[in-house]
């Protein structure tokens, strides 16, 4: 028993076929432990949303093709379940919080109904049981004592309240795994912190594992136990929060960290990574990062580096891990 509730192995996902084929995810290994927040960090187009959508079982096939890999949730192999079996795990076992609550909540349905319909469907509760539970949920997400929220429509709530409702919907069936896809990106900075605190509190209270998808390193630093950095459909570095933020080894991770503006770097020029993220139809051969990498050597465009263990729990995929790094 290793305590992992989600274990992704060698996941490969592509879109389209022939000339137009785009390999969005090219062999990802990722796991989330019980009660852990594991962040998947990358720029847009890196494959992080495709990965999380695939775990939810919401990837439209076609155009998406899952070429290989396994996704294990507890003892279930998700990719071999039928569509109906997967539906039953969604919301109940594996839940998801989305980026923009104002778009992801149904505008024509009262908040109460958006919560209770799940309880009635997944847990077979009757109307009054579900209503009682919905009030408890509101309390959990910090909207307690405000039962008026249940009879409100989403547009009648503030942005922060909407995201709390969104989280409430996700946790109402006590899922073991929560996928949070940029849940704070659309919010004001002051609200971001509140929502992050809420997510951490709920993780403690409910003991669920969280796969946290983000491009915002500051947010990731605040919330994560472990961090995996994804670039061009592959994990390039993975480790504990301290590993990644204090002793990053992959050039991409190092450059990403150098590009965060913070008080300590005031007055110095902010680093930006030269070049741009390649799109999935034209990933460079070899290590996909080599055209932008300051350490790149001839071999980098020839072969793809595999994940190399640096120390227990920390690994990176780069041929030049031993090279001197100067900023």
């Amino acid at each position: 028993m290793n305590g992992s509730i989600l274990e992704i192995k060698d996941l490969k996902i592509s879109f389209g076929t022939g000339e137009k084929k785009a390999s969005a995810v090219r062999g990802i290994d990722l796991d989330v432990m019980k009660g852990e927040i594991h962040s998947l960090v990358g720029e847009s187009g890196s494959g992080k949303t495709v990965t999380s959508t695939c775990v939810m079982g919401l990837l439209p096939e076609p155009p998406a093709i899952i070429e290989s890999g396994t996704i294990k949730y507890k003892d279930l192999e998700l990719l071999s379940l039928t569509a109906e079996e997967r539906r039953k795990t969604r919301g109940k076992e594996i839940a998801m919080v989305f980026q923009e609550p104002s778009k992801y909540l149904n505008p024509a349905m009262k908040v109460g109904e958006q919560i209770t319909e799940m309880l009635r469907l997944h847990l077979g509760m009757n109307h009054s049981e579900a209503l009682k539970r919905a009030i408890e949920i509101l309390d959990l997400v910090g909207l307690g004592g405000n039962t008026r929220v249940l009879s409100s429509y989403p547009h009648e709530l503030s942005g922060g309240m909407k995201q709390r409702v969104m989280i409430g919907i996700a946790i109402c069936c006590n899922p073991s795994l929560l996928i949070a896809d940029e849940p704070t990106t659309a919010l004001d900075v002051t609200l971001q912190l509140q929502i992050l605190k809420l997510i951490m509190k709920l993780r403690r209270k409910l003991g669920m594992g969280i796969l946290f998808i983000s491009h915002d390193l500051a947010v990731v630093h605040d919330i994560s136990d472990r961090v995996s950095v994804i670039y061009a459909g592959r994990i390039v570095e993975s480790g504990s929060r301290a590993d990644i933020f204090e002793s990053p080894r992959h050039p991409y991770t190092r450059l990403l960290l150098a590009s965060i503006p913070d008080a300590a770097k005031r007055g110095r020029k902010l680093a930006a990574i030269s070049g741009r993220v390649p799109d999935a139809e034209h990933f460079p051969p070899g290590c996909a990062f080599h055209p932008r990498c300051p350490l790149a050597e001839d071999g980098c465009s020839q072969a793809q580096p595999e994940m190399e263990k640096i120390r227990e729990g920390h690994s990176a995929a780069c041929f030049c891990l031993s090279k001197e790094w100067t900023e």
Binding site: R87, K92, A95, F98, E100, Y104, L121
Partner: peptide, 22 residues
């Protein structure tokens, strides 16, 4: 094609509920 339909699916609702209720 709206986002709340994705939410409805992510909630594990049946396709009938997603389409005809939401």
């Amino acid at each position: 094609s709206k986002e709340y339909v994705i939410t409805a699916r992510a909630k594990g609702l049946t396709e009938t509920m997603v389409k005809y209720k939401h």
